[in-house]
Design a protein around this nucleic acid. Structure first.
Lengths: 268, 268
DNA sequence: TCATGCGATTCATTCCTACAAGTCCCACCA
DNA sequence: TGGTGGGACTTGTAGGAATGAATCGCATGA
């Protein structure tokens, strides 16, 4: 095996065995050089191997420390009596309680012509004037850090159809939640599907979320329908080291849900 | 900005603009060296930046090509009239149809004492003889490639309780599906929760799944209950570049579900 | 026509060096 | 006592070089 992979393997094992606990400093590059009798390049490559897998954080001038994972679980199924759109808010409130940091959000509204995949998804005809979407972008921060970015797409006949729909065009929070607003406008949400996946962040994403190397993004797409009319498509981006999604089926007891909330996919 | 990040940024932009289409070769290291008037190390660093984000594949002797993503969507909610455990199988069948490759699977059964988190999760008392779990590990392959790994944990009082339960201890496929088997044993599944997240693979995981750098793993944990008794915990690991999970609420039409199946989180 | 083998191209690994820049501690001074 | 500056330590960036290994195309020969 290549020398740098040997070193990486060694270090990874020692981390897994708890020799280097989370938060603990790894040996410095100089120390590793003499330990393994190899050049700095090789040592650095080994460390990069750990870094790109999200196992360590390296700070210039300071050293490398073992990363710790405490992702928070985020309810994605509709709980009884809880409006759909309150979920993220409730979640943010929980974070606030857990971390003692004030959550903030920044909203931005854009109107765009829907083309290609998006038009097909929303069942809009781009040749009509109706082939537009209102995009509400909501960036949620915990402290100075971008916590999640949510992009919601609404067909513009909803926003333009009634005077109340104009609220969708305002870059302001909708206190009742958009689900209720849509219901008031004659589009009660009757069904929805979610697609969940993960990808690595682009350079921009990394800077945007302030996430270290080796941190994937959890991507959550949701399409909501009223009858058979698509009324909203939502794409949510979240750093996977701080977010997990929770779904359930059947009548869950509070204890079971609480237990699910404590699950950490990084375990085992 | 650092020189290698400039180059990486440039290349990423050109990829996004379609200048280098998926599957297309990027310029060679030599070409990039003269284009940017920089050393090979710097060029390689830029390329590694793309590689660790899963944007390119680099092959020795050949060059770097733009990676393409066609993840398949995998139904995670219970569809009506479809037993829970058939889902993955059905999914594999679909892959087989799409890709024309025979899926295979390898099963392994282990019995282990449940400790710590797992015992708490399964509500088992480690001091009792009942504090054991039967672990069924199922590796599913598409061709020679590991497609997903599934670890199912059953409390051993289920496997030992009745003679039929012994089927759980056999490293063989259970044709009816384990959900039906559990129902026969007196533990019909009444509710469940799922936690979905993503993490970077360890060195072992990378080798196991044969995934290139910059490919996260999608992790899917599911706890199933019969009444308030935990009857199964399942952890599924899947490379995120080939898997997405689909959930839904309400009565979905086949067309809407088909549309969801076509969603690709790498779009937009 | 087809298989073989050679050579050019290309990336992989590893070494070396130099300097920049961030961190941290401690001695020194006000 | 408390603040400041300097120096040691540590990682970041960049360049140069040599060798190994995989790939691919092309010419050669059966």
């Amino acid at each position: 095996m290549a020398r740098h992979l040997e070193i990486a393997h060694d270090l990874m094992e020692e981390i897994d065995e708890g020799r280097y606990a989370p938060g603990t400093a790894l040996p410095t590059e100089d120390q590793l050089m003499s330990t393994y009798g190899t050049s700095r390049n090789t040592v650095r490559r080994a460390l990069r191997e750990l870094s790109s897998r999200g196992r360590i954080d390296t700070r210039q001038g300071s050293g490398s420390t073992v990363r710790e994972y405490r992702p928070t679980v985020h309810l994605a199924s509709s709980a009884k009596g809880e409006p759909d759109d309150e979920r993220y808010t409730r979640y943010v409130e929980r974070i606030k309680h857990e971390q003692g940091v004030e959550p903030t959000q920044r909203l931005r509204v854009i109107v765009e012509a829907a083309t290609g995949r998006l038009a097909r998804l929303m069942e809009l005809d781009p040749s009509h004037t109706a082939g537009f979407v209102v995009i509400r972008r909501c960036d949620r921060y915990i402290g100075p850090r971008l916590w999640q970015r949510q992009l919601s797409y609404y067909p513009d006949f909803i926003a333009k159809g009634e005077s109340k729909g104009a609220a969708l065009m305002q870059p302001e929070d909708i206190p009742r939640g958009t689900r209720e607003l849509l219901a008031d406008l004659g589009y009660p949400q009757t069904k929805s599907w979610d697609v969940v996946g993960a990808k690595m962040p682009s350079l921009k994403d990394s800077a945007l979320f302030g996430i270290g190397p080796g941190t994937p993004l959890l991507v959550h797409d949701r399409m909501a329908y009223s009858g058979n009319t698509p009324i909203r498509f939502t794409k949510t981006l979240m750093p996977a080291d701080r977010h997990q999604l929770l779904y359930f089926e059947g009548d869950m007891t509070p204890e079971a849900l609480r237990k699910a909330t404590d699950v950490n996919i990084y375990d085992h």
